[in-house]
Design a protein around this nucleic acid. Structure first.
Lengths: 205, 205, 205, 205
DNA sequence: CATGAATGAGAATTCATTCAT
DNA sequence: AATGAATGAATTCTCATTCAT
């Protein structure tokens, strides 16, 4: 069951991802969502607030999950890190539209509320990484103590860069139908490999 | 000496970077460049063609350099790679405005000419990496043969992600005035460290 | 009662007739119709579609009438022809503005929809003439079987040419106030006289 | 040998005929004529004056010929009339571009100089017809004395209407390659036939 | 709750013409 | 005599938002 607001949000998300925020008109969104133009103002207040609503809709889940991992006492630091990484890759894969919008807003920095959302998410990531990295280091699991900001930039940057380039790489590497599936699997291996090295973690035999 | 076209290009680049292409009006560009609005059409044909002109202006130098490195017979594979990496970091640091625009266009994929520019640049990077990685592997300098597409995604992604987050990290990490300088130095170390590991390269003692 | 759309159509028709389509700006139309400029786009989509709307508004009636004459079994072929001729003269006299526009579009052939309107109207005329001429010939009423295309060109051409020249002729012939009234009466006589001859019709004594 | 002015005139005539005066830009004319934009202002003063120059270029010949016919004492009134008719048809056939422009200006009546050109041409036609018709009537060659204004409207109107419809009729009547040639021949017969009747002229056996 | 007509500002672009060279 | 860069006004159209119903 999808509420009327959610319906608008989902269609707006698709259009914002495809065409960009500025290039998408409220008319188009109304048409796509099969609602009247003025419903956007009615439900969300303005086009900008609608964008904020999309962020609210998508961001909360993400952060909750990350936090919940921390509490799992049955996992060691490396396992927690990998869980977060996998979850992140999964999310980006599943919410491509949203993460396209997010990437743009991360550059634009025009809407204060959204900038705050993004900052908050980054903060959460950095804090979580910090906790896990410290825990692993204290447990003797990790040998190094790399800078969390670069850890995050590499994970996040590689992931987005890879995501944006899938179709280019498929073309360039003459990939077949199952290219994307394998691509994301290799990406996970690539990233965990980098992490392993940066943290100085060695898998037990 | 700056020609009238260059003057327009430079002001447009600044505005496009600050506000985004769609949100920047030709009026604003004309005002900033202190020219008549119709000169944009006169010199470039349209707002879109002006964007393409910016890419033409900035992209060519970049690619030339990358290619020129390959010919240097006095450098081994690792040295070449580091040269390219450093140069890339340097360019992104110096041409922040342009690389902000590029990042957006990399996601938008709306202007065919620009998509082609970007693809071309990616192709050049991948081919260059391939050549250097093969050379290093054959010379016994590198022990691994990682996937070139992920190498690029990690370098490029980390770099852009880091660049976009400088001010956030400065805030978050309570950095002082010399934060940025040190930040980019550490970023270079971080990236070459990752490369070292991915390629299985070991510096001679 | 005039709807808002009709109001715009009527003012646009007047202005297009006076100044030509290209030379009439939407601003002027909006001013004349006392509406906001954007209402033209709102109601009709574009300036061009507004022109099409004018044609739709005026053309349909015309064709209906012509067709309805054919069914009148109480009239012979000559009487039908004269009815159509009189009606045509009457329409052109009453809808001068529209027929000025039509004449220009007949030459321009730029708007596909309008070209189709005009072709359709011509087709209808030719077919109608054909039916009536055949009927009259088979009934022995008409002695000749002239080419319908030239019949139409002469009726239509003479009519438009005469209409466009009224004020010139009034001047040239030093006509008085009732010139136009008499002019159109004579024009009707002139055209039916030509038809009589071309068809070989002789009025019964 | 074509002078630079003539070269511009000819290209402008073509473009004005194809697209209409308003819809043709001086840039296009300059491009087509392979001259600099400012040459139009240079040679003619303005775009409007260029249009007038086209009329001056084309109209004079036409009127001269018509007048010259009148002096031919070896021809009777009917022969003179037919000569003028044939010449008119020939001119319209050969100068289609110009006569398209003329038809539009005949409706527009915006440029005073051109309106004067057209009026002058009409006056000349009417006067010439008047002289010939009187001559033929006085010689007992013509039995009727029709109104000269309707004679002109029918000749001119039929001719233009026919000219504008050639391609439509060719389509409608499923004409072959030689359609146009035959069409204009039949048009001449059609018009002289009408004239014969209107004047009450009977060819000698 | 919901509509859709109406608004007015602002968008990019095109235009004929001018003017210094 | 000829150029072409430069101008500024005018063009159509699209936009987000408002408001009476």
């Amino acid at each position: 069951m999808v509420t009327k607001e959610e319906n608008i949000i989902l269609h707006a998300e698709k259009l914002f991802a495809d065409k960009g925020y500025d290039a998408t008109s409220t008319r188009e969104i109304a048409k796509a969502a099969e609602i009247n133009i003025s419903m956007i103002a009615y439900y969300f207040g303005s086009k900008e607030k609608l964008l904020e609503a999309i962020f609210e809709f998508r961001m909360n889940q993400g952060i909750e999950y990350t936090t919940s991992i921390l509490g799992k006492t049955d996992l060691n630091a490396w396992e927690k890190l990998i869980l977060i990484l996998n979850r992140y890759i999964e999310r980006v894969k599943n919410l491509k539209d949203f993460y396209l919008i997010l990437q743009r807003e991360q550059i634009n920095l025009k809407n204060i509320a959204i900038v705050e959302f993004i900052k908050n998410s980054k903060r959460k990531f950095l804090e979580t990484y910090k906790i896990i990295l410290d825990e692993g280091y204290n447990d003797g699991l990790f040998k190094h103590q790399p800078k969390v900001e670069f850890i995050h930039s590499t994970i996040s940057g590689t992931l987005f860069s890879a995501m944006n380039s899938v179709s280019f790489y498929k073309d360039f590497l003459k990939g077949t139908d199952d290219f994307e599936q394998e691509y994301y699997e290799n990406l996970q291996i690539h990233l965990s490999n980098i992490l392993k090295h940066l943290l100085g973690y060695e898998e037990k035999p």
